[in-house]
Write a protein that binds this DNA or RNA. Sequence first.
DNA 1: TCATTAAGTTTACAATTGTAATCGATAATT
DNA 2: AATTATCGATTACAATTGTAAACTTAATGA
Lengths: 142, 142
Amino acid sequence: MQENQISPSEWEIMRVVWTNHPISSREINDILKEKKEWKLTTTKTLIGRLVKKGMLSTEKQGRKFEYSPLVTEKESIDESIDDLLDQMCNTKVGRSIETILEKRTLSKTELEQLSELIKKKKETAPNKIYCTCTPGQCGCVV
Amino acid sequence: MQENQISPSEWEIMRVVWTNHPISSREINDILKEKKEWKLTTTKTLIGRLVKKGMLSTEKQGRKFEYSPLVTEKESIDESIDDLLDQMCNTKVGRSIETILEKRTLSKTELEQLSELIKKKKETAPNKIYCTCTPGQCGCVV
DNA sequence: TCATTAAGTTTACAATTGTAATCGATAATT
DNA sequence: AATTATCGATTACAATTGTAAACTTAATGA
């Protein structure tokens, strides 16, 4: 199936480790206590899977283990976004960004940065986006 | 687990049906022939699951069935995006959009529309985005 | 009419994921 | 030293997903 992605539950663990590391399984579990009503063993299972997937490193600290991330949060987020966008036609990406912008709140600064970036992109932007979908999977007239 | 989402393989089917409907299972399979080397039965299984999930409607047309979408492509795309963004801190959304813009090519028209939208959003944008993450799951200083 | 197609349905089976109990080793406590 | 509390590791088990064979029924062609 898919090549070693981070599942939603695993993502919860990763966020904790990205924020605090090195960190022990108990500490991870404590942090997630209210949000997810997981038993300690559940947390441990997820940690184990993340270690096996190469997402977390372990270091024996005395008798216990301390975990640290082997991938960055940005990397992982970007990958998820890519996976998502790869599922749709190129010509739908623009509209999707619009939808995000409509629904989510960004700060003035963030919007300003986006404006800048867009201005720059406009210089080299094509007049038309070409669809590369399998014929029959999108209605674009290329 | 997750509430009736569309899996990647199912998504392939949906794209075909969104583009061409009503459509029969054989036609769907023909369209996907080169992209996915699925047996006809595989296609049928996926169609069956989508019908069960309420994503496709069936209509008996003589002896065979014709399938049509019960959800729109935009709805589905937006939902996927929401699921993804919900996994991250509010304060990371802006940066994520930037990343998309950097990596994907948008047309002049699309960029123009985004500019417009951003301009409008700026009027009501806050100076700061507030993080609502579980403490310990992100490093934002709120 | 009888065999062959073709449609959908049922069954299958491994991998992934969500969730957790149990086990074995080690450390801390009494 | 004996007991208990902790760790990580192993095992468990159902739901979802990817992928497909087998089955049933109805239609079509010989």
